Simulated assay, not measured.
Amino acid sequence: MPEASVLSVIYDKLNSHFGDLHWWPGETPFEVMVGAILTQNTAWQNVERALDNLKAAGLLDPQWLYETDSRILEELIRPAGYFRIKTFRLKNFLSFLCSHYGWDLEKMFSEDLWLLRDQLLSVNGIGKETADSILLYAANQPIFVIDTYTRRIFQRHGVIASDMHYDALQTFVMKSLPKDVPLYNQYHALIVNTGKRYCRTVPRCEECPLNSIGYYG
């Protein structure tokens, strides 16, 4: 089966199973960006607690957050784990936002997709998955987010080779699917939910909505 057809079959089966997942949660683009940084190496429910703390403190504003003392910020985001490292990463990102775009998110979002991606990747503490999450979910740019679940699910169903690196896998997916922000958004959300519930380190294949298309281990 051609790769594009396989990806479409996977999408259709998962979409039929889960429905519209309305991912990524966040009331504002800035909240989405902060969440993308905080979710590194932790579960989303922990990020929600940290975001709730920032909301209660009235700090979900780029400049106010940047001007907040690091020790205060560390305590507010403590539920997200690695709070000192993540405070450092948030401050680095906010410094970038100030120096490059004067706190203007619309100006930032109007930047060329690949130029902005390169800029984000130059920020200490922002890797490819975080940068692409910011671009897709906050900036509404057509770029597909690759994560551990994406690689695992596509490998197990024989779609990709085990040694395919991030950029190659991203290019493969984006060439195989229509260039569409809502599609990329929903597809990634479907993959995340499948990975969490079924395609674990020890897989639950019998219950997985993809069991009919085979498991290659």
Rank of each mutant, 00 (worst) to 15 (best):
M1T: 15
E3T: 13
E3W: 01
V6L: 10
V6A: 11
V6P: 00
L7D: 05
S8H: 07
I10M: 06
D12F: 08
D12L: 10
K13C: 01
K13V: 00
L14D: 03
L14W: 01
N15Y: 14
N15G: 08
S16W: 13
F18V: 03
W23Y: 08
P25S: 08
E31L: 02
V32Q: 02
N46L: 04
V47W: 00
R49S: 15
D52W: 14
N53F: 05
K55D: 05
A57Q: 07
L59M: 04
Q63C: 01
S70G: 13
E74F: 01
I77V: 15
P79G: 02
A80V: 06
A80I: 03
F88T: 13
N92A: 14
F96V: 12
S99D: 11
G102V: 10
W103D: 07
L105M: 08
D112V: 08
D112W: 06
L113W: 07
W114L: 13
L120D: 05
L120G: 09
L121C: 10
V123N: 11
V123R: 09
L135K: 00
L135F: 00
Y137H: 10
A139H: 04
N140D: 14
N140C: 12
Y149S: 06
R152G: 09
Q155E: 14
Q155V: 13
G158W: 08
M164P: 02
H165P: 06
H165Y: 07
H165E: 14
A168H: 06
F172C: 07
V173I: 12
M174E: 15
M174F: 07
K175G: 02
S176I: 13
L183R: 09
Y184P: 06
Y187E: 00
H188G: 03
L190V: 11
V192I: 15
T194V: 05
G195M: 11
P203T: 09
E206T: 01
E207T: 12
E207M: 14
E207G: 13
C208W: 09
I213F: 12
Y215M: 15
Y215D: 15
